[in-house]
Nucleic acid binder design. Structure first.
Lengths: 344, 344
DNA sequence: GGCCGACGAGAAAGCGTTTTCTCATTGCCG
DNA sequence: CGGCAATGAGAAAACGCTTTCTCGTCGGCC
């Protein structure tokens, strides 16, 4: 009976009829506007409760010009790093009454720009994780995405906060740690070519090499997942390196797993380090030496930056730089004599 | 110049003016309605491109009565199981042009109902993972959430597909596996009290105990995460059991880590099994015997069910039951004599 | 050459809200 | 006792789009 003809759902009009007032008044009551007679307000509220009226958010969004929703574009939802960012973002946004819409680009960077645009139009703001997108494209689309917060990227476009992890510093810290343990032959198991954070690591390694010309650093092609590490065992062993800097924890774990299968002892024969400090890193065997990134916190900070933009607040410190913290565990240990020198 | 006064964004009206037609015609062109003169259509398209016009999805949603968005309610975004469901759901929905809005209840089940309602109103359908919600509450709110798909829950309310994993069968398979290895003293490291999937496991264990009265099965309180397993070492050792059925892989990994610290050999002294077969399960040390649940596939299936509901298709097989597959790895092995009998 | 049907595009009515504008009523003060 | 300010609620416009309704025009056919 109390059903509206068109959608079948109860609308503000139904409540208005039931309470014997105009729908404008219902709206006023529902939004806590106090220019309404308390008696009438009570009547409206009673009608709303009785009909279980819930305002349609779409109509509301149209009228208010806001959706109370933010979007996040991630290249791969299977990656623990993005899961953690999403988690931190979601939690922080929820505290302010915002929801998050996810857009997974499934690593196809050609789709990222369109995906980002679509997501943005449905939301009040956007968090963009697009490590492979070209700088040019990013700079081109960034203005149209405002309010926008960038993760692990920066852009020349104005007014776009960036939250970046100092991967360069982190990888240097790890390399220094290995050198401190006596390793003189290192290998870097790189991430996806073209990935921004991989670029930062490479820059860090260049700085490291400049500082330690006597240390040999082999560059090995790689990727960002478990199988990459697992499949890299041969090239790692062939490199003769005793200290391996894996692109991230996933790769490190895959590598350790592969080394284990070959009977190579970690850290006895080879030391392995990861990056990120994902939750599992402290439970691998051996536990993984890595550079800890407060990644869920980064998600929370992304929300705060975005919120400031949405509220058009003057923001004193736009963006931020996160320093990874060296987390020394059991996968790294003193270097032993190079394996090639065992004899024969 | 081409900016609309109110929102500052370009609207259909701007394109209409630029192309010298009515906004109705613009709408027709944008939606591929062929009752438009090709010349005019071309003019409109040119204007749209030049102005970079993108239809406002909110206005569109209001007019069409659909949002092309679905919602998913999860109790904990940090849990790999829900991450995988989300991933599968997101991917499948994206293929049909749908986006997903996430609602993380952060394990506070009192909020789940409100959260679900809010999410549902912004979306065309909902996937609900609410393992702790009471049956009564679920049954009460379910009709108002339609189209709705339930994960690992069923409800008496009509027309609600449920996708459930047969945890009872899985835990029985694992228990049988341990018994087959000679274990006679088992312990079940339970999940969160009140969790639906924990209940299913308990039922399975009852069936198992009825079949194997000679096997001793100790019930231990637990939880669902890493720390639970890690913290359960004492009670596990105290139980005297040699075969441990952990609630899930996370708990199993935590437990193995704790046992390792105590110098207890797995599987030499104690066999440990998990549940779920999360990606990391094959890379633990030792690799984890578990019951594999095709969880990302479940997310995909959830979308298909939901899609059928949204499209009001007659669906032949609503819901589905997933059989876990025993994945025997290195964390389970032959039982040795009970530790209490070593001597003294 | 005139009439009728078909086709194409503009006008207008929604979709469900919020909010401004307007007006009626009340009460106060001169 | 009358006029005016304040108050409160309804009417209507706005948000940006889709879609029905309506009407003008063109072409074909007799």
């Amino acid at each position: 009976m109390a059903r509206k003809s068109a959608t079948g759902r109860i609308g503000i009009a139904d409540v208005a009829v039931k309470a014997g007032v105009s729908h404008a008044t219902v709206s006023r009551v529902m939004n806590g506007n106090f220019t309404v007679d308390p008696d009438i307000a009570a009547r409206v509220r009673a009608a709303a409760v009785e009909l279980k009226y819930q305002p349609n958010p779409v109509g509301r969004s149209l009228a208010l010009g806001k959706t109370d929703t933010i979007g996040i574009v991630v290249p791969d939802l299977a990656n623990p790093t993005f899961q953690a960012i999403l988690r931190g973002l979601s939690r922080a946004a929820a505290e302010d009454g915002y929801r998050v819409l996810i857009a997974d680009s499934f690593e196809v960077s050609s789709e990222e720009a369109i995906l980002a645009g679509e997501a943005r139009r449905r939301c009040d703001g956007l968090v963009l994780c697009a490590p492979r997108m070209s700088d040019a494209e990013l700079e081109e689309i960034a203005p149209s995405l405002h309010p926008l917060v960038l993760i692990n990227r920066t852009t020349a476009a104005a007014g776009i906060p960036s939250l970046v992890v100092d991967y360069g510093q982190g990888v240097q810290d790890l390399a220094e740690h290995l050198v401190g343990l006596g390793h003189t032959r290192l290998a870097f198991l790189a991430g996806p070519a073209g990935s921004a954070s991989n670029g930062l690591r490479l820059e860090g390694l260049e700085a490291f090499k400049a500082r330690h010309p006597q240390v040999d650093v082999t560059m090995l092609d790689g990727g960002s997942d478990f199988d990459t590490g697992h499949g890299a065992v041969d090239s790692v062993l062939a490199s003769g390196a005793t200290g391996i800097l894996a692109f991230n924890d996933l790769v490190a774990m895959g590598l350790m797993s592969g080394l284990h299968e070959r009977g190579v002892d970690v850290p006895g024969d080879i030391s392995v380090t990861g990056f990120d400090d994902i939750p599992f890193a402290r439970y691998t065997t051996p536990t993984l030496t890595t550079a800890a990134v407060p990644i869920a916190e980064l998600g929370g900070q992304a929300w705060r930056e975005l919120r400031a933009l949405i509220r058009k607040e003057d923001h004193d410190a736009p963006g931020g730089r996160y320093q990874p913290r060296l987390e020394i565990r059991a996968s790294s240990g003193p270097a032993k004599a190079p394996r090639t020198a065992t004899h024969g």
